[in-house]
């Protein structure tokens, strides 16, 4: 099984440790991982701003970089969802479609493809899990609170394999944090307020760490925590599951 590792642009630039943890975790689980060096971005920042007609170049590059892998895995529900829903290449739509059907967010790759049942990781801390909207409502990584349907959580299952971790319950278990791509700057006031409220829910329940599957949400909440001079830290779920902290 050959896996192409997709590291979203902001992780590459700001949170390389998340990419390292993802890579190490996959390799520990016996996966042959390749990181295409010419990768950049999934195109979502443009498309969600209404400029999907500017993303052809970005899309073609993505297809070029990730054609030929059995699976493509990324530590970001949002970027994966964007590729799944929108990757398009006029010159090579078949390859684009194949990528769309083979791309996985890290947690679902672990639970659904690798069918991980145990992990060598321990994290003796109180942790709040932030459910990112695109991973949940887009990729169905966990059940949505709005629906009358059976509860489940793929990242929740994985965290349950981590020794000594204590997950805190939240008042609003899947409310958006307000990052929202360019929304975070174009609607700064609402974005920050949503982030403050989300962070507060974790703080009120005694979380020492906030984790999640999307660095974009975590970066937003980290920005707020740091501004508040809070000691609470954010970690991507890959860092906890990798067990090297």
């Amino acid at each position: 099984m050959k896996v192409g590792l997709f590291i979203p642009c902001y992780i590459d630039q700001f949170y390389p440790q998340v990419a390292v943890a993802t890579l190490q975790l996959l390799e520990k689980l016996g996966v042959d991982v390749d990181y295409p060096l010419q990768q950049t971005c999934c195109g979502q920042p443009m498309a969600n701003s209404g400029f999907s007609h500017y993303t052809q170049g970005c899309d073609s590059l993505f297809v070029k970089n990730f054609t030929g892998y059995d699976y493509i895995v990324a530590p970001s529900g949002s970027c994966v969802l964007h590729i799944k829903d929108h990757l398009h290449d006029d010159k090579n739509q078949a390859a684009a479609d194949q990528i769309r059907s083979r791309i996985y967010e890290l947690c679902e790759f672990l639970t659904d493809v690798l069918q991980v049942k145990e992990l060598q990781a321990s994290f003796p801390h109180k942790v709040g899990f932030h459910v990112s909207c695109h991973g949940q409502r887009g990729l169905h990584l966990s059940q949505m609170s709005e629906l009358n349907a059976e509860d489940f959580s793929k990242p929740g299952f994985l965290l349950s394999l981590v020794k000594d971790i204590e997950l805190v319950q939240l008042n609003r278990k899947d409310e958006c944090c307000g990052f929202g791509g360019t929304f975070c700057v174009s609607e700064e006031a609402v974005s920050v307020k949503m982030g403050k409220d989300r962070v507060q829910d974790h703080l009120e329940h005694g979380a020492d760490y906030i984790t999640g599957g999307d660095v974009s949400c975590l970066m937003h909440m980290e920005g707020i925590l740091k501004r508040q001079k809070s000691g609470v830290k954010v970690l991507h779920i890959a860092e906890i599951l990798n067990g090297q902290l």
Binding site: P16, A19, G195, K226, R227
Partner: peptide, 15 residues
Amino acid sequence: QRDMPEAPKESFRDW
């Protein structure tokens, strides 16, 4: 109202 993320020494690609 938010701190900027700190730019690390190297990107993942560099690493």
